[in-house]
Every structure is written in C-alpha cells, then in structure tokens.
Write a protein that binds this DNA or RNA. Structure first.
Length: 684
DNA sequence: TATTCGTGCGCCCTCTGCTGGAAATCC
DNA sequence: AGGATTTCCAGCAGAGGGCGCACGAATA
C-alpha cells in the first residue's frame, strides 16, 4: 500500500494486488460508495514478477484460497467482466481478489485479499466465510475489459446503510493497522450531500498471505516521507483506480487517491507509520525489517534500501555535469541533456504514424496519439461523463465539482482553479493587454476578445444570429441569448397592455400587441367627442372643460391653460427685445410669419411665376429662425398649434389667423384657443 | 547504469457564456 | 427632449484540449 501525494495535493492510497486466474474482491463494510466514484481506468500494467511469484506461492500453500481468512460479516460480491457477461456475480466467475470487511464494533474492516482458485469449482466451498446473509455490506465490483484494455473497479453499497466510518484492512505482511494509521476520507456521494460525513479508513496489514501484494518498501517509504495519514480530512475526494495486468496475469491496482491531501502533505509527521508494532510474531519480524530504514538527510525521504536512498539523494544534488553546448543549461543525466538538446535541434525521434507530428519522448507521442487519434481517455470522472487523457486534467476537472480554488489572487479575493486563469486574471490588475488587432491596433486582454473584435469589425460575411421567435438578427450568440431572455422568456406574472385589458406572458408579444394601438386615437374626452393619440393633448383639452388655467404671467397675473400660451403672451406684451420673424412677398411686400403662407400668397399674387429657387427663397426671407422646427406629419394639428403659439402666425395672415379671428370675433387667440379648437374652426 | 516510462506541472490556446457600459433606437 | 429599451461591444471568467518539459521510478 502506498500513500501517494504529489506536489499538487493529489494524495492517495494504493493497493496493488497481483492475481492469478480469477479474482474476488469482497467487502464487509457498509461503504456508501457510488459506482465509479472518480474511477480512473488505466492502461494495463505489469507488476514485479517477484511479487507475482510470491502470490503464487502463497496461494498454492492455501489450497487455492490462500490468504482468505474466515471472517464473519463478509459481503457478497460481484464481478463485472467485459470478457464475459457484465454484472456476473463473483460466484459464477473465477474469483481473483477478495476484499473482506468484517465489522468491528464501530469500525468496519475492509480487507483486501487475493484468492486464487485452481479450478472453477474449488472456490465456492472455501468461500464459506462469506456470509450471504450480510446484506448490508459493501460490495466491491470488478470489471475487466477484454484484451487487457481497461479494467474498472468500484465499490458499491449493497444496502443503503451508509458506512462512513470504516477501516480498510489490507492483507499484507508488512503493515500493521497501526502502521498504516487511520486515514479519514469522505466518500463523495452521488449528490455530494453526505459530504460532511467522514469515513475513517485504516489500512491494516495483517500477517497473511500477501495475496494482495503491496509494493513493499516503496509504500512504506512513501508513508514515512509523508508522515502517515492524517485524520484531519474534510471533503476528501478519491480516485479509485484499477489496472489490469497483462493477459493471463490478472492484476488490480486500487488507488484511493485523496484529492485534498495538500494540508497533510505540508505537515508531515515523520515516523508516524511506525508508531506501533505488529501484533504477531511474523509481523514483528517484518516490522524489524521495515524499521531498518535509511533517511535522506535533505528531506523526509526514507528507504529500506540504501540503493534507493542513493538514487533519491541525487535529486538534491546540485551537480549537473551535463551541459547543453547551445544554451549552457546543465542537467544531471545524459538523457535529460539529450532530450533538452533535441528541443534545440528539433530532433524528434518519436514520430506519429498517423500524422506529421513528432516528439522528443515516447511519452509525448503516446499522449499525442490519445489526444488526436485513439481518443482514449483513461481518466474518467464518476460524477459526470467527463474523461480525460491526463490525470492532471481530471484533477482540474474535479475542481469544478468540488469548487476548490487553490490559486488565490494576491490583490483581490479572486481565486482560480488553475494557474493560467489566475495569470489571466492578474491582467485585470496590471492593465496588460497583450493582444493587438493588426488592423486597427486596438488592444485586448484576451485573445478570444481580439478575435471577436476582428471578426465583428474587420471581417466580411460576419455570421449573424436570427432569433427563432422574431425577425431580430443579432451579431453575437450571447446577445441573442440576452434577447431571448428579455423578450421571449415566458413570465408567470401577467403583463398588461397599456391601452387595453389584454395580458401577455412575454414581452415581445406584449410589445407587438401594443403597437397595434399605435394609430388609434386612444384618448377620448369624457365631456365631448374629442379624441386624440397623445395623452398630453387630452390633458390640455380637458382644461377647456374644467376652465383650469395653471400658467400665470408673473408680470400681469394673466392666466393661461398652456405654458406655450403664456410664453407667447410674455414675448408679445412684456419682452421689449422680441422681434417677430416676417417673410415678405417678393412681389407685393406683404409680411407673413411662415414661409409657406407667404409662398401660397405669392403664387396667387403672381400666378405665372414659378416656384422660387433657393436663392429667391433666401432673398425673400427677411428673418428666419435658425432651426425652424417642421411639424411632424403625424401630428399636424399640434404643429399648427405650436406655430401659432410660437408667434409664427400674425393677424393679417391669410391662413389661418385671419380666418380664425373672424370665426372667433376678435377673441384673444393666444389666450383661449387650443390647437384642437383651431383645427375645429378650420374644419368649419 | 543508461534508458524508458509514467506522471505532474506549466503554459498557451480555443470555445463558451455572462456582464455591464456605450451607443442606437424607440416611445 | 428625455427616459426606456435594445443592441453592440469589450472585459472577464469557466472549462477543457494540447503540448513542452522535467523528473522520479521502473526496467533492461
């Protein structure tokens, strides 16, 4: 068993079992582990032959059920094999690895053991220690794909009685329970709702067969180097990794990879793995051997073999005798130097057979082929369907489930899930804009933003996005999404039409409906038959019924119904600087307040004359407002009124003032007439 | 002991989607 | 004229793919 911990916090326990023939994994603990929890499927892998031989010897000595210790409370088990029918129970297949987990008061022992059966018949009676009545125990399901391609191991809960306090007990001759310490881990439930519950697991190595073969020394070194397993583990997530062996030699590697072991790694507790001695004589003997360890003087690394230590010590050496002649960079080994030099020379001896790519190392080629050609993705997330070529990618992906953000910005509260995002984020503080548009030289913080800029601003045939519900065409997909959200989303709350009792549940339909009211004279006077399109007109009109005159001249206290009327009054009677605009007829010299009236007169005055040119118009115009506002077509009546009130019409003009004065018998037009009244008079 | 293999880290890239301010348009 | 609404646009972050490289462990 090995407690793995990488520099990035990926730690774990590895149980490696070498198997012959079939295998059985049994468990008696109520582990509530959903299937395929972070199941990692790896390439077929060999384990040392020596270990294999030991397995064979052990198993032979025990009549095919070697190392299987009778224990109560063993679980039923299941083997899923891609070579045969899936979901076949272990009793129907040749069992290989036994995981037994007898209950132990509050703790539950999960025992990994390997069983080898010489024949298909031999194993059943020897599995009597498996208690079929123990239905609430954890099951371990093993699947093996044919051809040694993939294998899958997961733990499964037979009953829903979750076990979050369990002890993983590995039959191995080197480690005792105490040596292994207790590792807490938290099982990730399907919905992660049980994330608060811990599951204590301890790897207990008993005097036994070694059917489950650990990598001796190595695991211990790892343990020692990392100070054993911490009991402090909250929100732990695990990779369960299974590796089949070569054909004909079944081998399963279970890796319970703790993804949140960084803190533990930072606080190693040297020697913790050896706190207690094995209980049995054999274990004591083994333990003595184990304790013959060699310690690295530079770090916490220890090894039972001096050769391993010597090899390890080299990593602390600053001696790098192999120097690149091109860049003077030094390396410890010739191989490293050669790989490095290849990066200079472009030498890539490992060529891809399916494309033109070539690589310095074979590992790069393998990875490339997985990415580009075989699409093999051995690292599978058990929470979702994500799978990746590299374990680091899976680890990064899992952060999207856990929410872990290890990379904290030093300048704000932002924290990212990977280093690149943090680096990219830092541009928001530095103001760095490394990407420049080659056309307009605008700069951007992200390449994607610049790309979009170039596409939208400098490209032809820019793709557009047509709204499926209306005729709107929008340049960007994300903006179309906003459009759909704002205008076409069904709202449970009813939206009422401003003009009628109709109600709608999306804004677009409401707006379209309200447009149908656009040309209606929606506003109807309650005192007369008058109707108009705009509410403000109705407000003014109503005053003709109520007699309200809210606008008072501060000079003479005269009251008016409209502000504009007051303004006209003030200019005409109280503003000494007021000079009215006058258009003179070029023929007879008669003055008009509006050019159109003058022109109409002019045509009568000289019926044969053509329409005046622009020069003639300018000449005819004595004074003209700098920007005379032309009336809106849809609101002629209002424009007439405004013209009147702005003093553009004068007594004596042919239309309409003379006419109106006659009609109103000399009343003060500015004071009493509204545009509607004017129009009404004109209509008579 | 040299070489190979597996792994992890870092870097860079793309694609995607959300957000909010600016500009345009509507009313 | 001015407020409300819509569209344009850049900024920014999430997620994932792909590769270079270094290094420890395994292996020949």
């Amino acid at each position: 068993m090995r407690h793995e911990a990488d520099s990035n916090g990926l730690s774990g326990l590895r149980v490696q079992a070498t198997l012959l023939g079939g295998g059985v994994i049994m468990a008696g603990a109520e582990l509530s582990v959903p299937p395929e929890q972070f199941t990692q499927i790896k390439e077929p892998e060999l384990i040392p032959d020596r270990a294999l031989q030991e397995e064979e010897e052990e198993e032979t000595d025990n009549d095919g059920v070697c190392g299987v210790k009778e224990q109560s409370g063993s679980a039923g088990l299941e083997v899923e094999s891609a070579q045969g029918p899936l979901q076949t129970t272990i009793l129907e297949e040749v069992p290989e690895l036994v995981l037994a987990a007898p209950e132990e008061s509050e703790r539950h022992i999960l025992t990994l053991r390997t069983v080898h059966f010489p024949s298909e018949e031999a194993e059943l009676q020897d599995l009597s220690w498996l208690d079929p009545q123990q239905e609430d125990e954890m099951q371990v399901t093993v699947s093996q794909a044919g051809g040694g391609v993939q294998s899958l191991v997961w733990l499964e809960e037979a009953a829903q009685q979750s076990l979050h306090q369990c002890v993983l007990n590995v039959q191995e001759e080197v480690y005792s329970l105490q040596e292994m310490e207790v590792m807490q881990f938290q099982l990730l439930e399907e919905n992660v709702t049980r994330a608060g519950e811990d599951c204590k697991s301890a790897m207990n190595l008993e005097e036994s067969t070694g059917s489950v073969k650990l990598q001796k020394g190595q695991e211990e070194e790892q343990l020692l180097a990392e100070g054993g397993f911490s009991e402090k583990a909250e929100e732990q997530f695990f990779l369960v990794e299974a590796r089949p062996g070569d054909e004909g030699r079944d081998e399963i590697v279970l890796t319970f990879s703790n993804l949140n072991m960084e803190e533990q790694k930072e606080k190693p507790q040297p020697g913790q793995a050896h706190l207690e001695k094995p209980s049995t004589t054999k274990n004591q003997k083994k333990a003595k051997e184990v304790k013959r360890t060699f310690h690295c003087s530079f770090c916490k690394f220890t090894s039972s073999r001096v050769s391993s230590l010597n090899r390890h010590v080299k990593i602390h050496s600053t001696e790098k005798p192999h120097v690149c002649h091109l860049c003077l960079k030094a390396f410890r080994t010739v191989t490293l130097l050669r790989n490095h030099v290849n990066t200079h020379t472009g030498t890539r001896p490992h060529k891809c057979a399916d494309c033109d790519m070539a690589f310095v190392t074979s590992g790069e080629l393998v990875r490339h082929r997985r990415y580009k050609h075989t699409h093999e993705k051995p690292f599978k997330c058990s929470v979702c369907k994500y799978a990746s070529v590299e374990a680091s990618k899976l680890k990064r992906h899992i952060r999207s489930h856990t929410g872990e953000r290890p990379f904290q910005c030093s300048l704000c509260s932002y924290a990212s899930k990977d280093t690149y995002k943090l680096k990219r984020h830092m541009r928001t503080h530095s103001g760095e804009k490394p990407y420049e548009c080659h056309i307009c030289h605008a700069r951007f913080t992200q390449s994607g933003t610049m790309k979009m800029h170039v596409l939208q601003k400098h490209s032809e045939n820019v793709p557009k996005y047509q709204c499926p519900h209306c005729a709107t065409i929008i340049a960007r997909k994300s903006d179309l999404r906003v459009h759909l959200r704002n205008l076409h989303t069904y709202e449970t709350a009813e939206m009422k039409c401003r003009y009628c009792p109709a109600v709608f549940h999306d804004r677009y339909t409401l707006i379209q409906h309200q447009k149908t009211h656009k040309n209606e004279k929606r506003f109807k006077c309650e005192y007369c038959s008058y109707a108009c399109k705009q509410e403000r007109h109705m407000t003014v009109h109503i005053r003709t019924h109520t007699g309200e005159k809210p606008f008072v001249c501060l000079t003479c206290n005269k009251c008016f119904r409209q502000q504009q009327l007051l303004n006209v009054h003030f200019k005409k009677y109280h503003d000494t600087n007021f000079v009215p605009t006058v258009y003179e007829c070029p023929k007879c010299g008669k003055g008009f307040s509006r050019w159109s009236n003058m022109h109409r007169h002019s045509e009568k005055c000289n019926s044969g004359q053509e329409k005046p040119t622009t020069v003639e118009k300018e000449r005819a115009m004595k004074r003209k407002p700098a920007s005379p506002r032309e009336p809106a077509k849809e609101d002629e009546a209002t424009a007439e009124e405004v013209s009147l009130m702005n003093g553009e019409l004068y007594p004596g003009e042919m239309v309409p003032v003379d006419f109106l004065e006659a009609k109103t018998e000399g009343e003060d037009l500015e004071e009493d007439l509204t545009c509607d009244m004017i129009l009404a008079l004109m209509d008579k």
